[in-house]
């Protein structure tokens, strides 16, 4: 007599758990946009650390730490541009629709950024200011190239 009821409750629990799980996997567009903006901000801050160090005391550890942040954030950004997180998402974003119409180019920029950021991590360990400066510019170049095409100008 009690059995169907227990089954119903179990099914309900399973359903709620499944729904909860789905929510955890597919974050809302607003959350995704906020997450990638926070990552970009960390990257910008890390770029500034390197720039300031090169202009000042050139602290090797600080520069290496910042370079690692850039490389890690570059990787973290890759899954944060799913469809539906463009200007139509109802949240303020500078991401242009071109990201989703020209995805291959966008992904190419992302790959290039990761490669250049990894090189920056390597040279920052050497403490060679000239080499770090040159690689800093290479990383900056990939930021600029992608932004020119895929980010609204402010």
């Amino acid at each position: 007599m009690n059995k169907p009821r227990i089954r119903t409750i179990a099914a309900a629990i399973a359903l709620v758990a499944a729904a909860g799980g789905t929510f955890a996997i597919a974050a809302s567009p607003a959350d995704t946009i906020a997450a990638r903006q926070a990552n970009f901000k960390k990257m910008g801050g890390a770029m500034k650390v390197i720039k300031d160090e090169l202009a000042g005391s050139a602290d090797k550890a600080k520069m290496a730490g910042a370079a690692k942040t850039i490389a890690a954030m570059a990787r973290a950004q890759v899954p944060l541009f799913p469809k539906g997180t463009g200007p139509g998402a109802g949240v303020k974003t500078d991401a242009l629709p071109a990201i989703w119409t020209d995805r291959a180019t966008f992904d190419g920029h992302a790959k290039k950024l990761i490669a250049e950021a990894d090189k920056l991590v390597m040279v920052s360990g050497t403490g060679n200011a000239a080499a770090i400066g040159a690689q800093f510019k290479a990383v900056g170049g990939t930021c600029g190239a992608c932004h020119k095409q895929f980010r609204a100008d402010d």
Partner: peptide, 22 residues
């Protein structure tokens, strides 16, 4: 001032944090 990329900045930006520069 600092730009969003932390790439371009005014000559005194080193005295401020990234958020301060923004």
């Amino acid at each position: 001032s600092v730009d969003v990329d932390g790439l371009e900045s005014g000559p005194l930006a080193g005295f401020l944090s990234f958020d301060g520069g923004r």
